[in-house]
Design a binder for these strands. Structure first.
Lengths: 291, 291
DNA sequence: AACTGGAATTTCAAAAATGAAACGAAACCT
DNA sequence: AGGTTTCGTTTCATTTTTGAAATTCCAGTT
């Protein structure tokens, strides 16, 4: 295809000019002499000027080549300042992790179990569960409840999540309470279906914040289906069912298959997998006791 | 392969940043949006920093991306001055043409037949007949006496050259003269073989400059085998044989097959071919008459 | 003068990059 | 609210680039 001035050709010309030939430049750049020769020829063609005399023992710059060398050195100064900027500043990569609200809190509660400040990556948490955001690189690692289906996603199973029904310990046995659910868990979701099939009812109240729902449960006003890593973390809550088999979900770490070989992404995945396979619970102190 | 900072990635990032997304940058650079997306991702990976937020309607620079943009603009200023340097100065390409000494003089004598100052190339003549110099791009077009054999050479036949024996017109008929030859035309060359077979002798005198040999012939001191485009150009010379079939050679324009699609090389070849197919002679005034 | 070492070019198989086309989703318009 | 347009990503066939190995040749050494 037809190109503009290729800056990489300039960079390689610079290396050849500095080394006085292809052999030295090949050593300096890690690119083969054959390729460097072709790139210099390509630059001569695009600039329409002879830049080097090709001799048996190396390349000698023409007058035009010497002029170009000066300008390529200008570009190299800017390039060197880019490298200095990256090496001098924080070179730690922010790894964006997305999960549902409960799982997000689980990670935050257990941060020290999978991350320390001396690591060369920093976790950044985002509550966004769309795979499209992994495609757009807005998310590096997603924690999802099923195996990824798209071929551009790579997944790793890291355990499963059990659900059970909970109410406040202060509610008298046999007292009939309504159910609360999350807006996204509508009547067609697994939790909605379970509720209809076992209690012949739907959630009386729905909210879009899991933390708010939890407060109402702890106040003794409603019952709720919760992941056991949440429900079991609060001593003022009690299960009113055993873990519900039909609501058990898997837990997957999902990344873009292009990204999974990146060292920080891999380290983060390894650390998260180690944590999640231990089936940790929330740290309940995070939430204030209900008034 | 593992690379250093790829300057072409920087150039393409600059285009994406200026356009606010892949679509506009694709239009500006002629490179597809898919490729630009990959190149920006590659740059993020090599610099180990997120440079853009990928949104549905374009790319938005992160803080690091904005910093990098400033430095890439520095590099672009140098790149623009390279383009200005090339456009402001002479953009005409020097085309190096190599041929034997006689053919070289033929070209110079007939310069206006194949080149004019308004052309976008300038001929540069070199007396060097080695094909290796075409490989090393020290020569753009070689005029050779046989079809090129190497596969990296492209050839175009442009006629043939006849040879005949000449002496000075002033030499009396039947007067026995010795022969002069060129150093490179030794006893094993076609001319050496012909001389031995037809006259049972070798060249008495050898010189390494064709012009010097010609002077001696014109002074009436020796006889010589000459290309007819040289011998017939001098009225004070006379053929003493008809054109010698066994010494006739072909005439080929030879270029590197990589170079033959370059417009200036192609123009020069076309012009030279047009001239040489007319079987032109030397302009005899070029050489001073013998004292 | 002969031999050796080093450098560049060429060939061709392998690897990498590219782009057309399809797809998905968000923003915009009616 | 529904339809259209625009943008970015993915897939896969095609194109381009790359590098290992071979070749050639020149400079340096013995």
């Amino acid at each position: 295809m037809k190109r503009n001035l290729d800056w990489e050709d300039l960079r390689l010309f610079l290396a050849v000019a500095k080394a006085g030939g292809l052999a030295g430049a090949a050593t300096a750049t890690g690119i083969s002499a054959a390729t460097l020769g072709r790139r210099v020829s390509a630059l001569e063609e695009s600039l329409n000027v002879r830049l080097v005399e090709r001799e048996a023992r190396g390349y000698r710059l023409t007058a035009a080549g010497q002029e170009l060398l000066l300008q390529a050195e200008d570009m190299d100064r800017s390039a060197q300042s880019i490298l200095t900027w990256r090496e001098g500043g924080s070179v730690r990569r922010r790894i964006r992790i997305s999960a549902g609200e409960w799982t997000m809190r689980l990670l935050i509660d257990n941060l020290s179990a999978f991350w320390r400040p001396d690591r060369d990556w920093v976790p950044e948490f985002l509550a966004d569960l769309r795979n499209r955001d992994i495609a757009r690189r807005q998310i590096d690692i997603g924690i999802r409840n099923s195996r990824p289906k798209q071929e551009w996603l790579a997944g790793r199973k890291v355990g499963s999540v059990q659900f059970a029904a909970y109410q406040a310990r202060t509610v008298p046995a046999g007292h009939d309470l309504g159910w609360i659910g999350l807006v996204e868990d509508d009547a067609h979701s697994p939790t909605g279906i379970w509720l209809k099939e076992t209690h012949g009812t739907e959630a009386v109240i729905t909210v879009n914040k899991a933390a708010l729902a939890l407060s109402l449960v702890r106040q003794g006003q409603v019952r709720m289906l919760l992941p056991v890593f949440v429900g079991d973390a609060y001593e003022d809550l009690v299960r009113i069912t055993d873990p519900i088999e039909s609501l058990t979900t898997e837990r997957w770490l999902v990344v873009h298959h292009d990204e999974r070989h990146r060292s920080q992404v891999r380290e983060a995945c390894t650390a998260l997998a180690r944590l999640l396979k231990q089936n940790p619970c929330l740290a309940p102190d995070f939430f204030p006791a209900p008034l």
